Simulated scan of single mutants.
Amino acid sequence: MARCFPIPFISLVASLALISPSPAQATGEHKMTPEQQAAMEAYTKAATPGPQHAALAKQVGNYSLLIKSWEAPGTEPMVENGTATRSMILGGRVMMESMNSKMMGQPFTGHGMRGFDNVTGKHWSTWNDSISTGLMTTTGSCDEKDACTFSGSWVDPVSKKTITSRMVSHWSGADAETFEMFGPGPDGKEFKMMEITYTRQK
């Protein structure tokens, strides 16, 4: 089975090939060219965790969840409870979240990742779960208090159309975060589809 590598990985390998010293360079006869040095510095900068990653690390822990979801505007929410665990991976570059709860009374598990891309200057996240086989990706921005606004999309399994949503989150204390997800209602107007209250366990 053929293995596919992401484009950034291929670019990195190509750049390392350019940067790697030739036999003559290895003996100290030549130094890297300015182009090779610039490429090495660019990749090093892109890979170095910064303050945005440190902010994500502050969210590490175990959380209890209160989940509210709405099928349509004006309806009563469905309320479920759950748990989530957040940890840092890849040398402090990415925060991973594992979630366990119920959806419509059935067991529900989800997996998400969040990070900050030093190259684009954008925050990003991914999400996949046990009620789908797809992947949702979002990008956005966060302020100095880690209040964030993201936007993303997924393909609706019924209509097969791409659905765009908006997600916002904010912290009301060091251990309490509220996440809200908005999407189009039957009339096409935006409404709140979901609200999750995270409470970190001591």
Rank of each mutant, 00 (worst) to 15 (best):
residue 87 S to Q: 13
residue 109 T to H: 10
residue 87 S to K: 14
residue 114 R to T: 14
residue 79 V to L: 06
residue 108 F to C: 15
residue 91 G to N: 05
residue 130 S to W: 03
residue 126 T to I: 03
residue 88 M to C: 12
residue 129 D to K: 09
residue 118 N to L: 07
residue 82 G to Y: 09
residue 80 E to M: 07
residue 84 A to F: 11
residue 101 S to D: 06
residue 124 W to K: 04
residue 107 P to A: 07
residue 103 M to D: 00
residue 93 R to T: 13
residue 130 S to R: 05
residue 107 P to F: 07
residue 129 D to T: 05
residue 79 V to T: 11
residue 113 M to T: 04
residue 130 S to T: 08
residue 130 S to V: 01
residue 100 N to W: 03
residue 133 T to H: 11
residue 122 K to T: 02
residue 121 G to V: 04
residue 131 I to Y: 04
residue 122 K to R: 12
residue 123 H to P: 01
residue 95 M to Q: 12
residue 116 F to L: 03
residue 90 L to Y: 06
residue 93 R to P: 01
residue 104 M to K: 09
residue 86 R to V: 06
residue 113 M to G: 00
residue 115 G to A: 07
residue 100 N to Y: 02
residue 115 G to P: 08
residue 120 T to S: 15
residue 111 H to Q: 13
residue 120 T to D: 03
residue 95 M to P: 02
residue 80 E to R: 01
residue 97 E to M: 10
residue 129 D to L: 05
residue 98 S to A: 15
residue 127 W to I: 06
residue 86 R to M: 12
residue 84 A to D: 14
residue 129 D to G: 06
residue 121 G to L: 02
residue 108 F to K: 10
residue 126 T to C: 04
residue 132 S to H: 11
residue 118 N to E: 07
residue 82 G to S: 11
residue 110 G to S: 11
residue 121 G to W: 05
residue 98 S to N: 15
residue 117 D to Y: 01
residue 123 H to N: 15
residue 119 V to D: 00
residue 120 T to V: 00
residue 131 I to W: 06
residue 102 K to A: 06
residue 127 W to Q: 05
residue 81 N to F: 05
residue 128 N to G: 07
residue 101 S to R: 06
residue 81 N to H: 13
residue 122 K to V: 00
residue 110 G to L: 09
residue 118 N to F: 09
residue 105 G to W: 07
residue 126 T to A: 03
residue 93 R to Y: 02
residue 110 G to K: 08
residue 106 Q to V: 07
residue 111 H to D: 10
residue 99 M to P: 03
residue 102 K to W: 00
residue 99 M to N: 11
residue 128 N to S: 12
residue 106 Q to N: 11
residue 95 M to F: 01
residue 127 W to S: 07
residue 133 T to R: 09
residue 107 P to L: 03
residue 109 T to D: 12
residue 101 S to K: 08
residue 85 T to D: 14
residue 88 M to H: 09
residue 98 S to W: 02
residue 108 F to I: 08
residue 109 T to E: 13
residue 126 T to P: 08
residue 101 S to A: 15
residue 86 R to N: 11
residue 128 N to E: 10
residue 130 S to G: 05
residue 92 G to P: 09
residue 90 L to R: 02
residue 84 A to Y: 10
residue 103 M to P: 00
residue 120 T to C: 01
residue 85 T to R: 15
residue 96 M to Y: 03
residue 133 T to S: 13
residue 115 G to Y: 09
residue 104 M to R: 08
residue 117 D to S: 11
residue 86 R to C: 13
residue 106 Q to F: 10
residue 107 P to K: 06
residue 98 S to R: 14
residue 95 M to N: 01
residue 113 M to Y: 11
residue 104 M to Q: 10
residue 93 R to D: 03
residue 80 E to K: 02
residue 103 M to Y: 06
residue 117 D to H: 05
residue 83 T to S: 14
residue 83 T to R: 14
residue 118 N to H: 09
residue 79 V to I: 11
residue 103 M to S: 08
residue 132 S to A: 12
residue 128 N to Y: 13
residue 98 S to H: 14
residue 108 F to W: 15
residue 131 I to N: 07
residue 93 R to L: 10
residue 102 K to Q: 11
residue 112 G to D: 11
residue 97 E to N: 11
residue 107 P to W: 07
residue 89 I to V: 13
residue 89 I to K: 03
residue 109 T to Q: 14
residue 115 G to D: 02
residue 124 W to Y: 14
